[in-house]
Nucleic acid binder design. Structure first.
Length: 586
RNA sequence: GCACCCGUAGCUCAGCUGGAUAGAGCGCCGGACUUCGAAUCCGUAGGUCGAAGGUUCGAAUCCUUCCGGGUGUGCCA
C-alpha cells in the first residue's frame, strides 16, 4: 500500500475536523528522522499558525486528538514547536504486511490509476564505435527507469535510438574498400568497423581527395544507391549481433530499435516547415533557429547567442533535425504521452533547445531529459576510455573484469570455508555478483552526481555495495533451504506479527516499499530503490542476529518465516527493478 | 560572454517538494562466531553543510552576491 499517501489523507482530514476548517489542508506528512519521535510526523499545524492566529502547539493538540482511535495509529502526540508525532500500531503494520505477503503478483505495490504511454530513450550507441564506460550509465539507468515505470503499470516503450546514419558511413564505405577485413567483421564487427573508421577519418584529415570520395559515397547512400545501401545494411546487421550480446549480458532489452536512419525521409519536410512558420531562417548558408529573435522562446534560451542548427550549409541534416522527427514520430505514430531521454548531462543544452522547438511546434507531449553525471576515474578526472597502452577499455571488457574479480573473491571465500557455492554454480554467481556490483555502484548514487569508478570499493563485498544486498537475499533463501520449507507456501499461510524491536524495525522498512517505488518512478531516480533495499537488508541483518527463525516456536516461527519471505521477495523485486539479479547461494 | 552542474566527516556519497540534535559506507579504534551463513552484527571517535547576506516561527535545502571545481556553447552525435 501507499503508506504516506494514506497517512496524508488521514492527517489532512484530521486537521480539517479538529480545527473546524472549511476544507482539507496539507498534513505535510514526513518520516521522522529519529525513531524516538515515532514513525511519521505531521508538520501541517505550523503553517496554519499565522492564518488562524494561534500558537502552533495549540493547533497541534486537537489534531493529535482527532487521530486517536484510528486503527493504524497507536499514538499521536504533540512535540517540539508544533509537530504531531505519529506512532504506527504494530498490529496494523503486521496486517498490512500479511496482505503484501499474500500478493505474489505485486508485493503490495498498487498499479497506477492514470496509465501513461512513456517512451524511454536510452543507451543509443553509435554503430561504428565500441560501447565504452560512457555508455554504461545510460544503458543501466535507462533500463532501471523503464522497469520501474513498467512495474508501476505504465505502458513503456524502450527505444534504442542508435547512431546508424550520418557522416561516418561515407568514411566507412570508402575505408572498408581500402582496409576492410570481412573475417574480422564477422567475428568482432564493431571492433573492425571502428578500426577502419579510425584509419579512414585519419586519412580524410590529410587527404582531400579521400575525404571527397567519402562525401560522394555518403551522398549516394543517402539518396538510395543500392550498393551502398546494401553495404550499410551489412554494417548495421553485424553490429547488431555484438550489441545484442552485450545487452544480454547486462539483462537489458528494447521494444524498438529506431535509429537515426529511420527518420531520414522526414527531415526535409521538417526544415521546410520550420522555415515556413518563420521559426527558422537561413544564416551563412545554414538553417538556424535563433532564440533571441524567436517569439515564445523560453527565457532561459533568450540570451543564447548561438543558434540551433537544423541544416548545414552543405545541405546535410544534423541530429537536431533527426531528434525533431523522432519526437513527432513518437507522438503521431506511437501516441506517446511522455518521452524520457536518458542522456549525459553534457547534452542538456541540446535537449533544452529540442524541447523548445517542440513546444513552438505545439507538440503536446511531456519531454524530459534524464541527465546523469560523468564517470570519473580514481583520480577524480573523467575516466579514460583507453588504458595506459592506448587500448580502448570497452564495456564488454569491463564486464569481463567484473566477473573475473567476483570469481576471485568467491574462490577465496570457498578456500577459507566461508562461502557455499557449488562448483557448477560458480559461473552464474560470479556473473550476478560481478555485474550486479558494477550496476549497483552506479545506480546507488543520485544520477546527477559525477560518479567515481573504483573497482576496490565496488567488489569490496562490504557495506553499502551490491554483494551486501545479494548476501542478505541468500541468507533468507538459506533459512528456507535449511528448514526444508517452501517460500511460496509460507507466503500463502503465514501470519505476520511484530513483537521484538528488530521485527518492528524490519516491518516498518518493509511497509515503505510501495512509496519508494512510486517516488523513484515519479522522479526517475533509481537510487531511491537502491537506498531502500540497502536499509531493508540492514534491518534484516539486524533481525537475523536478534531473532531466531527456525528455532522459534509456533506462531512466532510462522511470523518470522513470513517476514523472511517478504524480505526476500522485496529484495528480489527491488533489485530486479534496477536490473540486478540475486542468487540463492553465494 | 552566456547557460547548466557541483562544493556536506580523512575518502566515496545520501539528505536539498524548508522542519527537531545533518546521515550512511569505507578507513580508524573497541567488542560479538559451541546457536538459522562473521561477505554479518553491536559500539566509539570524526562536520563553522565553500563564504557572506536575505526570506521564514524554522535554512544543508529557497533567493542574491562572491570564491573554488567541472561541463556545454554555428555547421560531430
Amino acid at each position: 500500500m501507499l503508506l504516506e499517501r494514506y497517512l496524508e489523507s488521514l492527517g489532512s482530514r484530521a486537521i480539517a475536523e479538529a480545527l473546524d476548517l472549511d476544507g482539507p489542508r496539507p498534513a505535510l506528512i514526513r518520516p521522522t528522522q529519529d525513531a524516538k519521535f515515532g514513525d511519521f510526523q505531521i508538520n501541517g499545524a505550523m503553517p496554519l499558525a499565522k492564518e488562524l492566529k494561534k500558537p502552533p502547539r495549540e493547533l497541534a493538540q486537537p489534531i493529535a486528538e482527532a487521530l486517536a482511535g484510528i486503527d493504524a495509529i497507536e499514538k499521536a502526540e504533540v512535540a517540539g514547536p508544533g509537530f504531531v508525532n505519529i506512532h504506527l500500531a504494530p498490529a496494523w503494520i503486521a496486517l498490512k504486511l500479511t496482505d503484501a505477503l499474500r500478493d505474489g503478483e505485486r508485493d503490495g505495490v498498487p498499479a497506477v490509476e492514470d496509465v501513461s504511454k512513456i517512451v524511454v530513450d536510452f543507451s543509443s550507441p553509435n554503430i561504428a564505435k565500441q560501447m565504452h564506460v560512457g555508455h554504461l550509465r545510460s544503458t543501466i539507468i535507462g533500463g532501471a527507469i523503464a522497469r520501474i515505470l513498467s512495474f508501476m503499470g505504465h505502458k513503456v516503450i524502450r527505444d534504442n535510438h542508435i547512431g546508424d546514419w550520418g557522416t561516418q558511413f561515407g568514411l566507412l564505405i570508402v575505408g572498408m574498400r581500402e582496409w576492410g577485413d570481412e573475417t574480422a567483421l564477422q567475428s568482432d564487427p564493431i571492433a573492425e568497423l571502428e578500426r577502419v573508421y579510425k584509419l579512414a577519418s585519419e586519412r580524410a584529415g590529410k587527404d582531400e581527395d579521400f575525404a571527397g570520395r567519402a562525401r560522394v559515397e555518403l551522398a549516394k547512400l543517402q539518396s538510395g544507391d543500392e550498393r551502398n545501401l546494401a553495404l550499410w545494411k551489412h554494417f548495421v546487421e553485424v553490429s547488431r549481433v555484438s550489441l545484442d550480446a552485450l545487452y544480454a549480458e547486462l539483462d537489458v532489452s528494447f521494444d524498438l530499435w529506431l535509429g537515426e536512419s529511420a527518420y531520414h525521409d522526414a527531415l526535409p519536410g521538417i526544415v521546410d516547415d520550420l522555415l515556413e512558420r518563420g521559426i527558422a531562417r537561413e544564416d551563412d548558408g545554414a538553417v538556424c533557429i535563433f532564440w533571441g529573435e524567436t517569439d515564445g522562446a523560453p527565457k532561459s534560451l533568450r540570451k543564447q547567442k548561438t543558434p540551433f542548427i537544423i541544416r548545414k550549409k552543405d545541405g546535410a541534416f544534423l541530429y537536431s533535425t533527426t531528434d525533431i522527427a523522432t519526437v513527432q514520430h513518437r507522438k503521431r505514430q506511437l501516441h506517446a504521452d511522455r518521452a524520457l531521454y536518458v542522456v549525459d548531462n553534457r547534452q542538456s543544452l541540446h535537449f533544452q533547445q529540442l524541447f523548445a522547438v517542440m513546444s513552438l511546434l505545439d507538440t503536446d507531449m511531456e519531454l524530459e531529459h534524464i541527465g546523469f553525471g560523468t564517470v570519473l576515474g580514481k583520480d577524480g578526472k573523467p575516466l579514460r576510455t583507453r588504458d595506459v597502452s592506448g587500448e580502448v577499455i570497452t564495456l564488454a571488457s569491463l564486464l569481463e573484469e567484473a566477473k573475473e574479480r567476483a570469481r576471485q573473491r568467491i574462490d577465496e571465500g570457498i578456500a577459507e570455508g566461508r562461502l557455499r557455492v557449488q562448483p557448477e554454480e560458480i559461473d552464474e554467481v560470479s556473473r550476478q555478483v560481478g555485474i550486479g556490483a558494477v550496476k549497483y555502484a552506479d545506480l546507488r548514487q543520485n544520477r546527477l552526481s559525477d560518479y567515481q569508478f573504483d573497482w576496490d570499493k565496488m567488489i569490496s563485498f562490504q557495506g553499502n555495495a551490491g554483494p551486501y544486498l545479494q548476501y542478505a537475499y541468500a541468507r533468507c533463501s538459506s533459512i528456507f533451504a535449511k528448514g526444508g520449507l517452501d517460500m511460496d507456501a509460507i507466503s500463502l499461510s503465514a501470519t505476520i506479527t511484530l513483537d521484538a524491536p528488530a521485527e518492528q524495525t524490519l516491518g516498518k522498512q518493509l511497509l515503505r516499499f510501495a512509496d519508494v517505488v512510486y517516488q523513484a518512478g515519479a522522479t526517475s531516480q533509481p537510487h531511491l530503490i537502491c537506498e531502500h533495499i540497502y536499509e531493508l537488508a540492514r534491518a534484516f541483518n539486524g533481525f537475523y542476529a536478534a531473532c531466531p527463525v527456525l528455532d522459534a516456536d509456533g506462531p512466532t516461527r510462522q511470523s518470522r518465516l513470513g517476514l523472511t519471505a517478504l524480505t526476500a521477495r522485496q529484495i528480489r523485486r527491488g533489485l530486479g527493478l534496477v536490473g540486478i539479479g540475486v542468487v540463492d547461494r553465494m
